[in-house]
Design a protein around this nucleic acid. Structure first.
Lengths: 146, 146
DNA sequence: ATCCGCTGTGGAGGACCTGGACCGCCAAAT
DNA sequence: ATTTGGCGGTCCAGGTCCTCCACAGCGGAT
């Protein structure tokens, strides 16, 4: 029962364009049954959406970095994510425990763009930054095999 | 020309299940033309695949962490990614510049699982670890608006 | 000028989607 | 024990979409 949903999610994480017919064959259900299960998974928020996975280098973003962020004034209200949400170079923003408050994952084309991005982040959010350059990415975005 | 490809990629990153017919309408091309452009993007490696985006909490992985990794013996051959590639809890592995050699992004269900995962990583790869717990994730996996 | 490769169009058959009608099961209430 | 209702499934049909193929326009090279 719940196992069927996990199976469907697993299949769609691996191939987000699989047809409902094929999902049905793979799970032993009819097309319609799979379809409504997927719809329920979507509106329950288990499946948030579908996306093509793109090679960042191929679209002109060969430089990846992690930026750890710490507010200048720890007593100020903390709205860093809001302040930075318009910056498209930021792929992810995690609030973390530890020395710094947030870890950002960013993608840019050149070191110059990174420099400019850092200054934008510092002034926009009122934070100091610590940047870790990614040299290569052996693997990334692997499916969470449940 | 190249602009068309960027447009198609953008659309598919936002909605990985969009039909070729709709892609055609959005780009002003015929279905067939879009189709073969997408095929070329796929086999050129620009589009690596398609995936459903899943809420990690909804599939029983509410705990995310970054693990920075540094080999005990810096002179030993460095095959950390290979040694760790079988561990499904590791979602991503980045080689980085700086104090540590790699940053891993992991997802587990409970602190106990994280503890166990850390010891597995240490013994399997011969590394010391520094773990940063993610408290919350304001956003993640945003499309790289090119 | 002709050829040739590339890219796009149009069409047709088949696969796929999508909604509705219907059925079986289980549980709770009568 | 029977009824009732909700849930989750199958089956079916119409319309849409995919997918391949033949062909057209268009540069560039011979």
């Amino acid at each position: 029962m719940e196992d069927l949903d996990r199976q469907i999610v697993q299949l769609l994480v691996t191939d987000g364009r699989m047809s409902y017919t094929d999902l049905g064959k793979a799970t032993g259900l009819s097309t319609s049954a799979v379809h409504q299960r997927v719809r329920r998974l979507e509106q329950r928020g288990v499946i948030r959406g579908y996306a093509a996975m793109v090679d960042p280098e191929a679209v002109g973003l060969p430089l990846t970095a992690f930026i750890s962020v710490k507010p200048f004034d720890p007593s100020a209200p903390d709205d860093v994510p809001d302040r930075l949400s318009d910056i498209n170079e930021i792929e992810a923003c995690h609030s973390v425990a530890g020395e710094e408050n947030y870890i950002l994952k960013v993608r840019v084309g050149t070191p110059g763009e990174l420099e400019h991005l850092l200054s934008r982040i510092r002034t926009l959010a009122g934070v100091s930054t610590r940047t870790t350059i990614v040299l290569s990415t052996p693997y990334e975005a692997r499916p969470p095999l449940t």
